[in-house]
């Protein structure tokens, strides 16, 4: 599995995730260009966001690297947000991405005019480094 692009060196003005024991591997993997989801060895359930338990059966899930490919399940174009830095980014797209592996993840779809985003559109992940060891997944239209 190839690692995805990681954009480094840009000033990060957005809210930062507060790493915790469960989320730390997720954010650290993203900083390396890997999108992680969780897979339950007991029942096979796959889930996002990461948790200490499988939401289906309650067992302990394991990490699994996702392909980083998915489609837009639903989205909105944010046209009003008074909070910094988002007020300077308007309009932008917040979407739920349905991963090839099944789970849905939230993210922004970039590198496309907001009005051109459509449900069902194939997208691929890229990472932006918020700080050392903390990468955040973003999405752009799939190249192929």
């Amino acid at each position: 599995m190839t690692s995805t692009e990681v954009v480094r060196g840009e000033e990060w003005l957005r809210p930062k995730p507060a790493k915790d024991p469960v989320s730390t591997p997720y954010w650290e993997a993203a900083a390396r260009g890997e999108l992680l989801i969780q897979h339950c060895p007991s029942c096979g359930n796959r889930q996002w966001y990461p948790r200490a338990v499988c939401t289906a059966c309650g067992e302990s899930p394991e990490w699994e690297q996702a392909s980083g490919r998915g489609t837009v399940h639903t989205f909105t174009i944010i046209r009003q947000n008074y909070a910094k830095p988002f007020r300077d980014l308007l309009p932008y797209v917040v979407a739920m991405i349905e991963l090839e592996e099944g789970p849905m993840v939230m993210g922004n779809v970039t590198d496309i005019e907001a009005d051109d985003v459509q449900i069902g559109m194939p997208v691929e992940v890229y990472m932006v480094e918020a700080e050392e060891g903390l990468g955040v997944p973003f999405w752009r239209p799939a190249k192929s």
Partner: peptide
């Protein structure tokens, strides 16, 4: 449209997976 987390904050718990994206 202004009550969600602002830049510069640290967001814990499940919202940490949504806050970077600026949803309202």
């Amino acid at each position: 449209t202004g009550g969600f987390q602002r830049g510069g904050s640290r967001v814990a718990g499940p919202m940490q997976y949504e806050a970077p994206y600026g949803n309202s």
